[in-house]
Deep mutational scan, measured.
Amino acid sequence: SEEELEEFAKEVLRRGITIIVNGIRITEVEIFVKVLREILEKR
């Protein structure tokens, strides 16, 4: 749901943790923004 997305976004921003994806360091915020864009483009 959109509320869950908002909560996830807030949690990500609070933690600001960097994770490893395919050997490249990407912040969770960047991943969230990318996923959010993909979701919005599909609408």
Rank of each mutant, 00 (worst) to 15 (best):
S1Y: 14
E2Y: 14
E2A: 14
E3F: 14
E3N: 12
E4K: 14
E4G: 08
L5D: 03
E6T: 14
E6S: 07
E7G: 04
E7H: 10
F8M: 03
F8P: 02
A9Q: 03
A9T: 02
K10G: 05
K10T: 06
E11R: 11
E11P: 01
E11T: 06
V12E: 01
V12R: 01
V12L: 15
L13R: 00
L13F: 15
R14T: 05
R14K: 13
R14F: 07
R14M: 10
R14D: 09
R15H: 08
R15Y: 06
R15V: 06
G16L: 15
G16C: 12
G16H: 13
G16N: 08
I17C: 02
I17H: 12
T18K: 13
T18P: 13
T18A: 13
T18F: 11
T18W: 12
I19L: 08
I19Y: 01
I19W: 04
I19H: 00
I20R: 04
I20G: 01
I20Q: 05
I20E: 08
V21N: 02
N22V: 08
N22L: 06
N22Q: 07
G23Y: 10
G23V: 08
G23N: 08
G23A: 11
I24A: 03
I24K: 07
R25G: 03
R25S: 08
R25Y: 10
R25H: 14
R25I: 14
R25F: 06
R25A: 11
I26D: 07
I26F: 03
I26W: 05
I26K: 01
I26N: 03
I26Q: 00
T27L: 10
T27G: 02
T27K: 05
E28G: 07
E28V: 06
V29R: 02
V29Q: 01
V29S: 08
V29G: 01
E30H: 14
E30T: 09
E30R: 05
I31Q: 15
I31R: 06
I31S: 10
I31F: 10
I31K: 12
I31W: 10
F32Y: 05
F32M: 11
V33Y: 04
V33D: 01
K34S: 10
K34E: 05
K34T: 07
K34V: 05
V35N: 02
V35D: 00
V35Y: 13
V35H: 05
V35G: 01
L36C: 00
L36R: 00
L36P: 01
L36Q: 00
L36S: 00
R37K: 15
R37L: 15
R37P: 00
E38G: 06
E38A: 11
E38Q: 09
E38F: 10
E38T: 07
I39K: 02
I39D: 00
I39N: 02
I39C: 02
I39Y: 13
L40A: 04
L40D: 00
E41K: 05
E41Y: 07
E41A: 14
E41C: 09
K42E: 10
K42C: 08
K42Q: 14
K42W: 07
R43E: 05
